[in-house]
């Protein structure tokens, strides 16, 4: 039991379980799933479906953070991906055909590749701090998205496209399946190749990695490209779900949620060891938190304050200084007791 508690995923999982239980207590049918028209419905499915974009982006963010970086531009990439694909569909001669939808998806992914390469270039080749480098795209990217949509909300009606975010396959929402597929891909990409180990090596000890002949530049490039592609898929999902591209609001603040998911999941912002499973759990926690706010009847406005308190708590628990302080507080009674004992002797 003790060793189980020490596992790095223990606390995120416990937190998630507690949140789910809380919901169950207040809403007895919370965990129940029902089948309707061959589709699964239920609160748990909703949590997964609504959390899918955040999970996707958080997966990419995890690898970026593991290399001691950060990617602020994902929200802007979400907007660009949605804008590019919807604008293409709306302008195409056959706005309803599956081929058009497929081309739109391809366009969004290729755009994301380019944006990821751009971020990677600034960070690895030019040597700009990650937070600053991605700030450029964070600022300009949303403008580019608005440029593509002409500042309008571009609505599309294309059933194939709609199925990405709102469709069902094998009784499950497509968005959940896509997210699972990307998760599997990330897991295979990092564990079947040496990428995962090398990412961790660069994040844990860049100096030693360099002396071991590691070319950190390529690794950094890969993680930023992966992050951008994840963001683009999330962007497709979001725009497909509402069958429209909203360059202003799509993916707004999603970078913050993603970073939060990574941190709650147990990956340190200082880089190094990461856990993709932890990140998924972290994203679920965030999504469940939002659901809980509704279930408990707390006004939804409070969610953000809630999140802020969670970030602060988690960061404080991760900060070495706070940990030292805690352990000192725990140890503190000892010397005090000794002092007391001494005094008694003196008397």
């Amino acid at each position: 039991m003790k060793s189980l508690l020490k596992h790095r995923l223990a606390w995120p999982v416990i937190a998630l379980a507690a949140l789910l239980l809380l919901n169950q207590v207040f809403k007895p049918d919370f965990m129940s799933l029902r089948m309707q028209d061959g589709h699964l419905y239920g609160s748990l499915i909703d949590i997964m479906r609504n959390g899918a974009p955040t999970i996707l982006i958080a997966l990419g963010m995890t690898l970026v953070i593991a290399t001691r970086g950060i990617d602020l531009s994902v929200g802007a990439v979400v907007a660009i991906a949605g804008a590019a694909s919807c604008a293409y569909i709306a302008a195409s001669p056959e706005p309803g055909s599956p081929v058009t939808a497929a081309t739109a998806v391809l366009i969004a992914v290729v755009a994301a590749l380019a944006l990821g390469v751009w971020n990677g270039f600034l960070v690895s080749t030019i040597g700009v701090q990650p937070i600053i480098a991605t700030l450029v795209l964070m600022t300009a990217g949303r403008g580019v998205a608005q440029l593509i949509t002409g500042g309008q909300i571009v609505s599309v009606s294309n059933d194939s496209y709609k199925s990405i975010g709102a469709g069902y396959l094998f009784t499950l929402p497509v968005s959940i399946l896509i997210t699972a597929a990307v998760f599997a891909l990330a897991a295979v990409l990092t564990r079947r190749t040496a990428l995962g180990t090398l990412i961790e090596a660069v994040g844990i000890n860049p100096v030693a990695s360099r002396l071991a002949g590691l070319r950190a530049r390529n690794i950094i490039w890969i993680v930023y490209v992966f992050s951008a592609v994840c963001a683009a898929i999330a962007g497709l999902m979001i725009s497909s779900n509402v069958t429209a591209a909203d360059a202003n609001n799509a993916g707004l603040y999603i970078e913050m949620d993603a970073i939060l998911a990574v941190v709650i999941g147990g990956t340190s912002l200082a880089g190094g060891r990461y856990t993709l499973v932890g990140t998924v759990v972290g994203a679920f926690i965030i999504q469940t938190l939002t659901t809980t706010v509704y279930t408990l009847g707390i006004p939804p406005e409070v969610t953000l304050v809630f999140k802020a308190l969670v970030v602060i708590t988690v960061c404080l628990l991760q900060a070495p200084k706070a940990r030292n302080l805690l352990s000192r507080l725990k140890a503190a009674p000892k010397p005090a007791a000794q002092e007391a004992a001494k005094e008694k002797v003196a008397i």
């Binding site: 190749t193 040496a194 180990t197 090398l198 990695s209 071991a212 002949g213 070319r215 390529n218």
Partner: peptide, 14 residues
Amino acid sequence: VLVMQASKGWARRI
């Protein structure tokens, strides 16, 4: 295996 792996590159896992 770090140095050997770094020489092979990330794609070719030992």
